[in-house]
Design a protein around this nucleic acid. Structure first.
Length: 373
DNA sequence: AATCCGGGGTT
DNA sequence: AACCCAGGATT
């Protein structure tokens, strides 16, 4: 049957190509399932080149499941600072604590047990089971969806759940006996190096001859995917309050759930939540922001917070929200000695080393000279 | 099935 | 300016 030949050809040629072309990546130098696990979580929605330095630092800081389990959450978040999707770090540590307590620190080698851990979905479960334990499990990520949809000319919407399930069955069939680890890495490697999203490099592809998508001239229009909604705009006023001596900055800790959970940040407030017009002039923003922050900090500080000067606009786009931050420098001299209400805190430069901040605020503090660039 | 959850590199 | 990246949790 022609279909079976196309599948056997794909598996054989891809595996041969991978043995020659595989990249030397930090997590490929380890056989430790914990290291493979950490790498897979970091690689969720994140590029290889971005992950490399984070992975090296993370496994140096937390070499074992038990070490990660014992660490303070803030230390883990600090090691994750700048990577994004911070719930990955919190879930990974939560899962490490479960593995430490329930399995004595040994990563479970069955899909059922491993997949039950926090932050481990169908992809990560399949990836760690196949790569670390060579178990025959599919691991369908964006690369696999793209490669399979092109090679087999599958025109289903890859954003649909049913398409993913179909891809998992297909990938399972393609795994050569005893080759799950290399094969799953090979198909992802092909997607990353050759079968790229735009303008795939078909002339260097090991399975070009029998690629149905290319033979149909559809290699650039596949995979078919419904496009995401554009992020909604949020207009916010943001306070940069540096202490009189210039040594500390006013930060606050975010709530334990939702956007940027448990991270630290400069105080800010949404215009719409305060009934302020989005087009408010700088002077008015400074006054309104000072009034708001004074009330936030409590009766002792109320009235002590004063506007100083507009700093400018900082913009930051999340996948679903676009922040437009009107940043103002404020003074709060009279409030510096008074006790601060939760979740606010004065943080000095040494303290910045242990408080995890989203990149948008790190950039802001560097631009304003509070953190060395 | 939608929506929420970061940040940045490619084209 | 899109697009999308070795996705998962929540609703």
């Amino acid at each position: 049957m022609q279909e079976q030949e196309a599948k056997a050809y794909f598996s054989k040629e891809l595996l041969a190509w991978y043995r020659v072309q595989k990249r030397d990546l930090p997590w490929r130098r380890s056989r430790d399932p914990y290291h493979i696990w950490v790498s897979e979580v970091m690689l969720q929605q994140t590029r290889v080149e971005t992950v490399k330095p984070y992975f090296e630092r993370f496994v140096a800081l937390f070499p074992t499941v038990d070490a990660l389990a014992r660490a303070p959450e803030e230390t883990v978040l600090k090691a994750w600072e700048g990577l994004g999707y911070y719930s990955r770090a919190r879930n990974l540590q939560s899962a490490a604590r479960e593995v430490s307590e329930r399995y004595g620190g040994t990563v479970p080698d069955t899909k059922e047990r491993f997949a039950a851990l926090k932050g481990v979905g169908p992809y990560t479960a399949g990836a760690v089971m196949s790569i670390a334990f060579n178990r025959r499990e599919p691991a369908v990520d964006g690369n696999v969806m793209r490669v399979l949809s092109r090679y087999f000319c599958i025109e289903e919407d890859v954003a649909k759940g049913g398409t993913r399930a179909m891809m998992e069955r297909l990938q399972y069939e393609l795994i050569p006996e005893g080759e799950a680890s290399d094969f799953n890495q090979a198909i992802m490697e092909l997607g990353a190096l050759v079968c790229t999203p735009k303008s795939p490099h078909c002339l260097t592809c090991p399975v070009m001859e029998r690629c149905a998508g290319r033979l149909e001239g559809k290699e650039e229009s596949l995979p078919i995917k419904t496009k995401a909604k554009p992020p909604r705009p949020e207009y916010r006023a943001c306070a940069l309050v540096v202490s009189e001596d210039g040594g500390s900055v006013l930060l606050r800790k975010r709530p334990a759930t939702g956007l940027l959970a448990d991270m630290w940040e400069l105080p800010h407030v949404e215009f719409a939540a305060m009934g302020w017009p989005a087009a408010m002039a700088d002077a008015a923003v400074g006054d309104a922001l000072a009034g708001w922050l004074g009330a936030e900090l409590g009766p002792e500080a109320s009235g002590a917070v004063r506007p100083a000067e507009p700093v400018g606009v900082a913009e930051h786009t999340f996948s679903h929200i676009h922040w437009n931050l009107r940043v103002h420098r404020l003074t709060a001299a009279a409030a510096e000695g008074a006790p601060l209400r939760e979740p606010y805190r004065w943080v000095d430069r040494a303290g910045m080393e242990v408080h995890p901040l989203p990149n948008v605020f790190v950039r802001l503090l560097k631009a304003e000279g509070f953190i060395p660039a």
